[in-house]
Nucleic acid binder design. Structure first.
Lengths: 108, 108
DNA sequence: TCCTTTCATCGATATCCGTCGATGTAGATA
DNA sequence: TATCTACATCGACGGATATCGATGAAAGGA
């Protein structure tokens, strides 16, 4: 239910303008969210389904439940995923626009 | 003068296969190389010209020369840039295929 | 040969990050 | 109310990382 901050500028292409400091910080923050094998796997897992319950993730990965929750928070803060609770369970899904925006930052 | 390891699999798209552990590790390593504002700015700087001398980078950024060299090594190890020495100077350039491959990993 | 310049590497340090157990919170059930 | 489950948060610990000064290596010039 959050608005998605879209990357305003392109990072690396043939005719590329210099990034401002806030822009390069924002880009690095987003890449940092993907700079961990577990988080890459979570994103990959979410991309295969509309929604994934946290309980499924804790089963899939050989990590403690707090660790999974920690990674999900990082992905949430980066705007790459969003969550919603239904009853006792929390379901996470990808934010496709955020992925697309990141991809766009890597060139035209 | 190095061969470029191309990302074999796509991370996050509509019909996406699960990543193997080596694949997700390789992807995370490459994203980690971009998970720093200085390195994002270096990539952005390199994308604006064919080649950039290290001396220009040390002038551009308010960081010590060893720190710049450290970041360049990380980008080199990730295969995102390559370098060549001519005389006293070292010139760095982008590896466009690596950037393209990373972009491809973020979807079709 | 000696000195200067350019860049890479080394060693040290402060901070960041991934991980875990313990605890808190909210919903469901009884 | 009491209790159980699913998930988030807290606090702590160990390992990784960004940064620096000092040093090394290689090339050019005096």
């Amino acid at each position: 239910m959050k608005s998605i901050a879209v990357l305003p500028t392109i990072c690396c292409g043939p005719e590329t303008e210099p990034l401002t400091i806030p822009e390069r910080d924002a880009l690095a923050s987003r890449f940092k969210a993907l700079a961990d094998p577990t988080r890459v796997a979570i994103i990959n897992c979410l991309s295969a389904a509309d929604e994934v319950c946290v309980c499924n993730l804790t089963e899939t990965f050989d990590l403690s439940q707090p660790t999974i929750s920690h990674h999900l928070k990082i992905l949430r803060d980066a705007g790459l995923v969003e969550s919603s609770r239904r009853g006792t369970w929390a379901y996470y899904r990808l934010v496709p626009e955020a992925i697309t925006a990141l991809r766009g930052a890597l060139g035209t």
